[in-house]
């Protein structure tokens, strides 16, 4: 589903956020990108969402090379990916329902079908009763769940999330992660950038540890086996191509 081949992202000014990164995520996997802030997690997600383009190397998402997605095709490309942001990026001038319906309206769904899907999505994140409220009347955790509902309402096969629990307390964080887990269980590939290691350990998913834009080299011997196991999946992209 996601394949990075020797990807480097250099920003104007020379700062390299990602350096020669190779990694892959299989269809149906739920994977965490971890690392300190500045390790390149956000840039990695932005490369997937085509917000940034790699300086060199290839980013291939579901068989599409993002370098070959032209400017005019970016909207259609982004519609295949559900995106969740740390700051939710909701539109505060309209109710929850309209926020969640936005991707469907963009895609041209009729009102009835859109309404049905929006309610299904809100039901999945447990906010069905709050559809008429404005986002600012909701708690941060609820706002994040609105963001998740919006990301999954058009039933994408890939869901990416940048620090989705960054502003949440541990209980709410775990609740949000369980929602992601449920989508993963029905076949959605999920990639989450997070630095909340204790939470990730509780979920027991594969991790892609980043350090200074590269895959982190494990320091302890015990972790080497895991790393090799990861490297195996990395070297086997033909599995999903």
């Amino acid at each position: 589903m996601i394949l990075f081949k020797d990807v480097t992202k250099r920003f104007p000014g020379g700062y390299e956020a990602i350096r020669g990164l190779d990694m892959s995520v299989d269809k149906g996997e739920m994977v965490f990108v971890t690392g300190h802030s500045g390790a390149g997690k956000s840039t990695l997600l932005r490369l997937i969402a085509c917000i940034e383009r790699p300086t060199s190397g290839q980013v291939i998402i579901n068989g599409q090379n993002t370098s070959r997605v032209g400017r005019s095709r970016i909207p259609a490309y982004r519609r295949q990916i559900g995106m969740v942001f740390q700051d939710h990026k909701l539109l505060y001038d309209r109710p929850v329902f309209d926020n969640v319906a936005l991707p469907l309206i963009i895609a041209g769904f009729g009102h009835r079908e859109a309404g049905r899907r929006v309610r299904a999505a809100l039901d999945q994140v447990g906010l069905l009763k709050k559809e008429k409220q404005r986002p600012e009347t909701l708690s941060t955790g609820e706002q994040q769940r609105v963001g998740i509902a919006r990301a999954i309402v058009s039933r994408p096969r890939l869901l990416i999330a940048d620090e989705p629990t960054g502003n949440l307390d541990p209980d709410l964080s775990f609740e949000v992660m369980r929602i992601f887990r449920r989508f993963n269980e029905v076949g959605v590939t999920v990639l989450i950038a997070s630095h909340d290691l204790s939470l990730i350990d509780r979920l027991g998913c594969r991790q892609i540890p980043l350090e200074n834009g590269r895959l982190q080299v494990p320091k302890e011997d015990t972790a080497v086996d895991d790393y090799i196991a990861d490297a195996d999946t990395i070297s086997g992209p033909e599995k999903w191509l």
Partner: peptide
């Protein structure tokens, strides 16, 4: 801000 968010969600310029 609203335009940026809508673009992120995949809205075309025409939309």
């Amino acid at each position: 801000e609203e335009i940026e968010v809508t673009k992120l969600i995949g809205a075309s310029n025409a939309f």
